[in-house]
Amino acid sequence: MKVMLTINGLVVEAHYSDKEIADVHLPLLRKLADRKTIPSHKRKIIFLSAPPGTGKSTLTAFWEYLARQDPLLPDIQTLPMDGFHHYNDWLEEHGLRPFKGAPETFNVDKLAKNLELIRDGDGEWPQYDRQRHDPIENAIRVMAPVVIVEGNWLLLDDDNWRSLEPYCDSSLFIQAPTDTLRERLIARKCAGGLSANEARAFYLRTDGPNVERVLAHSRPADITLTMTESGEYRFS
């Protein structure tokens, strides 16, 4: 299947085989959308954690699309974690601006408060502005009965990020070969205008350590997918 998806304001062409959709994506969505253990007045919150380069944004946009095509599935809404970056002024003050994207550069307390609010009713969610490189508050209206919060650090095994556990009804993790992620992330930076040397330097400074930290220090998820070298997904 070829489908055009809108991600961060850009239209992206995505491709998924019919076999992968039938064997992986639809069964997974039916499982994630199951609300048997969730009180009827509460929203189901799913954490999707994965290292950079695993295609989280495209994948979850595709899941939203699939859910809209299936009358047996509820609406599913993706909520990116990037809107909970600390503002650049705060990062500068704490010497963390060069490490933006690392777990220490996110406002976890603010994320917990937003999760608490949306669990019991409709609410607002911030979005990261890639032009201003800062969050925009209340940019997303949360309305779907099932939401997928996606980010790198949601299952990080430390006290700060473990504080989010009470808001997670189901968790999902994506594994991937580090060599594949390195190639994808360097290619992404080159496509964004960096030279090959600049892209490799960025990977060594930022993306590479984040990939290793996510893969090595994330808590086990309820469901794990593996992204193959070709970019397909399968159950682990």
Results as ranks from 00 to 15, higher is better:
F202M: 05
P166K: 14
G53L: 03
P52Y: 08
K113W: 06
L32W: 00
T6Q: 09
G55T: 07
E212H: 12
L79G: 04
V147C: 15
R119D: 06
Q127H: 10
P80S: 02
E116I: 02
S218K: 04
V24K: 06
K100D: 11
L32K: 06
L91W: 04
G9E: 04
F235M: 13
L225Y: 08
V146W: 05
D129W: 08
G193E: 12
N114P: 00
R35C: 01
E20P: 07
L28V: 08
G208V: 07
P71F: 07
A191K: 14
A196Q: 15
L215M: 15
I76V: 15
F173N: 10
I136C: 03
N107P: 10
T6A: 09
M4E: 15
I7Y: 11
R219T: 12
L59F: 09
R97V: 15
F62H: 13
D169I: 03
Y233K: 02
G55R: 05
T206Y: 01
A112F: 03
D122I: 05
Q77H: 03
D207Q: 10
S49A: 15
L29I: 04
D169M: 05
P74E: 10
N138I: 00
I46R: 07
N107W: 08
D89E: 13
D34G: 01
P74W: 09
L194G: 02
Q175T: 15
Y128M: 03
P166Y: 05
K19V: 04
H133R: 10
L91T: 11
S230H: 13
H86F: 15
I45F: 06
V147H: 08
N114M: 02
L225G: 10
T78C: 03
V147S: 11
